[in-house]
Amino acid sequence: MILPLKNIRLSLVDTGDETFRVSDPAGASLLAESIRAVGLLNPVVLQENGKGGYRIVSGFRRIAALRSLGWDEIPSRVATAEADFDGLAFLAVSENAASRPLSIMEESRAVALLGPGRPWEERTKLAEKALRLAANPRHLERLESLSRLPAFIREAISSEAVAFAMALTLGRLPEDDARVLAELFSILKLSLSKQRELLDISTDISKRDEVALREVLAGPAIAAILEESGGDRGLAARRVREHLKRRRFPHLSAAEENFSRNAAELRLPQGAAWEPPPFFEGEQHTLSIRVKSRAELAARKDLVASLLENPALSRILP
């Protein structure tokens, strides 16, 4: 598609029209610094909007940067209002993909622009060409669906608070529940596996107790944990998970806490450990002693006898 080069007044560009937007909104200030230093190297692409103005096809961040720099006009390749949508969309995606690695939300918006309404096999070929990536239709379909998620989920993806898979999961939840989870994930910055664990355990509690997921996660107990953790994300994450686990598995958690108390009373020397059967299901306990020398082993020779005298042991091994 060959488009004529023109100088267009920035005031005529409708930046609210995001029809062809691929790029994330952030990043304009860095770009402004670059343009201030070396000028604008590539013209933007605009399309006449039929109302005397222009919509942006490619160059959202450049135009934001130029506005911040106070430019009045911008060199632009200009398409007519009748120009082919698919051709302009392909151009917008290709230019963005060629200029930098796209974020996941940018990829999602890019896929949404490529051949909407056509079969996914066809759209996949377009995406492979425009985005220069190997893809499969199912993945692209999921990727595109991100662009239709509520704004707070898209923001959580952009800020890397939630990953692709979790975003899709949040998108299937009632919006109020998803919002609470997205906020919590944004605060705690958990890995995907920890997010899944937290979601699974909260969902189980919600279904068991017949309360909404948001009530499980937005209760006073979790609010207090976040408050008391004083911005220490690691501590807050651990305490939130412990709180939920105690709620989900009250008897097992009580047994674990009881065991920990009794094990502490055993006053095992450094290098020795007592492990109960996993989940207290089997009957076999494990006493382990780590030594580096015969002398260390000799120093432990009375350990078993002293344990047998310890009243805490009879609570661990009745």
Partner: peptide
């Protein structure tokens, strides 16, 4: 079970992994 029996609460009991790999109620229960 969650998909086919949404009203059933049976998957949400206090289950732990058993020695045979199956989930089972915490032993004292």
């Amino acid at each position: 079970v969650a998909r086919r029996f949404p009203a059933s609460k049976i998957p949400y009991g206090e289950f732990i992994p058993g020695a045979d790999g199956k989930m089972r109620y915490y032993k004292p229960l």
